[in-house]
Computed example of a mutant assay.
Amino acid sequence: MRLAELSERSGVSTATIKYYLREGLLAPGRQINATTAEYDEEHLRRLRLVRAMIQVGRLPVATVREVLGHVDDDSLGPTIRLGAALWALPQVPEPDTEDEYVQAAHREVGALLDRLGWENAKQLTTISPAYRSLVTALAAFRRLGYDWGAEQLTPYAELMHRTAVLDLDNLEALPSGTERVEFAVLGAILNEPALQALHRLAQEEESARRYGFE
Rank of each mutant, 00 (worst) to 15 (best):
86 L>Y: 00
88 A>K: 02
167 D>H: 09
56 V>W: 00
183 F>M: 03
43 H>C: 08
63 T>G: 02
165 V>L: 11
70 H>N: 09
199 H>E: 07
108 E>A: 12
56 V>D: 06
204 E>F: 08
79 T>E: 14
76 L>R: 07
154 T>D: 11
133 S>K: 07
34 A>K: 15
17 I>M: 07
193 P>F: 03
138 L>G: 00
173 A>R: 13
13 S>G: 14
149 G>F: 06
43 H>L: 03
32 I>D: 13
196 Q>K: 10
125 T>H: 06
162 R>N: 10
122 K>T: 15
49 L>H: 01
141 F>T: 06
23 E>I: 06
55 Q>L: 14
104 A>H: 14
53 M>R: 00
100 E>L: 12
209 R>H: 15
1 M>D: 07
107 R>I: 12
145 G>V: 11
95 P>T: 02
170 N>A: 12
124 L>S: 06
129 P>Q: 09
64 V>E: 05
25 L>H: 01
15 A>V: 14
105 A>H: 01
54 I>G: 06
24 G>N: 11
146 Y>C: 13
198 L>G: 01
12 V>A: 09
112 L>T: 04
189 I>N: 01
56 V>L: 09
206 E>V: 10
47 L>R: 03
144 L>N: 11
38 E>I: 05
165 V>E: 06
133 S>W: 07
185 V>T: 00
62 A>I: 12
188 A>C: 05
17 I>S: 04
180 R>N: 01
67 V>W: 01
140 A>D: 11
88 A>V: 03
142 R>I: 03
147 D>A: 15
20 Y>L: 05
158 E>A: 13
27 A>N: 09
111 A>K: 12
166 L>G: 08
214 E>R: 13
99 D>G: 04
149 G>V: 10
140 A>T: 09
178 T>G: 04
184 A>H: 00
28 P>Y: 15
175 P>A: 09
33 N>G: 10
32 I>Q: 14
127 I>R: 12
115 R>W: 10
157 A>L: 07
121 A>K: 05
